[in-house]
């Protein structure tokens, strides 16, 4: 078990290094930070001095080594745009994104999995057909359209919920949470729904397809022939056998929700990492972009590890092979 975790972590290293190289390459290929930092009437000597100060005259591998060394310590330099340490900026923004992402993921699983089970078991009922038709709309509706529709209905017309921002937050250590205030919770609802709808419809359809598959298997027929109750067959035998693919997709989705909440955060002016990223792209603020890329790679690596560990728990056949 421990050996398995260690080997997985070692496998993740090349992935992270590759992403680090891409992030690092951003500095060289996207814009010229020196030109951006110097004033318009700076001399060539000023320029050389700054290049030397920033270490940009050293060979690329030395620069890359320094970049990785700093990154490991959480040090990504100063934001060009805000002149503040990137690590501080990201630490400020991360709680907003993570709270949004986990709320959306929780909604996805708590609604999507039961809907998938229902539509899988009662595949011919009209309720299932209706749900699947609606889910098709959910899959095909672009996120920003949905977000704006929700704002139009619930914020503008009905005035029930705020249309932007995070509401009041409470500071717990370095973590700022919006989950403890009424206005924070209200502000969370619309963006979370916006982010969850697509994932939810996907999970529903996935669970349904897997249920249909599993319910046709011999061991389910045999479970019926043994006279087990429907509940134990559907929610025990069948559901557990659908879990491996569902965990895989749900893990990737969670990564996706964290990494690509950009559109939702922009629509709702949500002060998270995605919004920070899009602002940084606009200002060619490369240190922030590079740090964000690395962070997202790390998120995916961690989630994949968690997914692998869950397989291990669910399926005894995988345990035996190691």
């Amino acid at each position: 078990m421990v050996a398995f975790v260690i080997s997985r972590l070692l496998q993740a290293l090349p992935v992270l290094l590759a992403v680090a190289l891409i992030s690092f390459a951003l500095f060289t290929f996207v814009g010229d930070p020196v030109a951006a930092m110097l004033s318009q009437d700076a001399s060539a000597a000023d320029r050389t001095a700054l290049v030397h100060l920033l270490g940009l005259d050293q060979p690329w591998y030395v620069q890359f080594g320094k970049f990785v060394g700093n990154a490991v310590q959480g040090e990504f330099g100063l934001s060009y745009r805000l002149s503040r340490p990137v690590s501080t900026l990201i630490a400020e923004r991360a709680p907003a994104t993570l709270e949004l992402a986990f709320c959306a993921a929780a909604m996805t699983l708590c609604i999507g999995v039961p809907l998938g089970i229902f539509t899988g078991i009662y595949k011919d009922s009209w309720v299932s057909r209706l749900l699947l038709t609606i889910s098709l709309v959910g899959v095909s509706l672009p996120i920003f359209v949905l977000g704006m529709l929700l704002i139009l209905v619930f914020a503008v017309n009905l005035g029930w919920l705020p249309s932007f921002g995070r509401g009041e937050t409470v500071q717990i250590g370095w973590w700022s949470t919006g989950l403890l205030t009424a206005s924070g919770l209200k502000a969370l609802i619309l963006p979370a729904i916006t982010l969850a709808v697509f994932q939810l419809t996907l999970i529903t359809r996935l669970v349904r397809a897997e249920m249909l598959e599993v319910l046709r298997t011999d061991y389910i027929k045999f479970a019926r022939a043994r006279g087990l109750t429907n509940r134990s067959i559907n929610f025990g035998h069948a559901l557990k056998n659908t879990l491996v693919p569902v965990i895989t997709i749900a893990g990737l989705q969670l990564g996706g929700i964290i990494a690509f909440a950009i559109v939702t955060e922009t629509v709702f002016q949500w002060p998270g990492m995605g919004f920070l990223f899009i602002q940084s792209v606009g200002a060619a603020d490369i240190p922030v972009m590079a740090a964000y890329l690395l962070l997202i790679a790390l998120v995916f690596v961690v989630i994949n590890l968690a997914v692998d560990l869950l397989y291990y728990l669910v399926d005894p056949r995988l345990r035996a092979k190691r």
Partner: peptide, 27 residues
């Protein structure tokens, strides 16, 4: 269905063809 369920297993058992697929692999 429910009355028949009580008969299956209890009064009429069944054995299927392929033992490799009739047992739930996860239990």
């Amino acid at each position: 269905y429910e009355k028949m369920r009580r008969i299956r297993g209890k009064r009429i058992g069944a054995i299927f063809q392929d033992p490799l697929t009739t047992l739930n692999p996860l239990y």
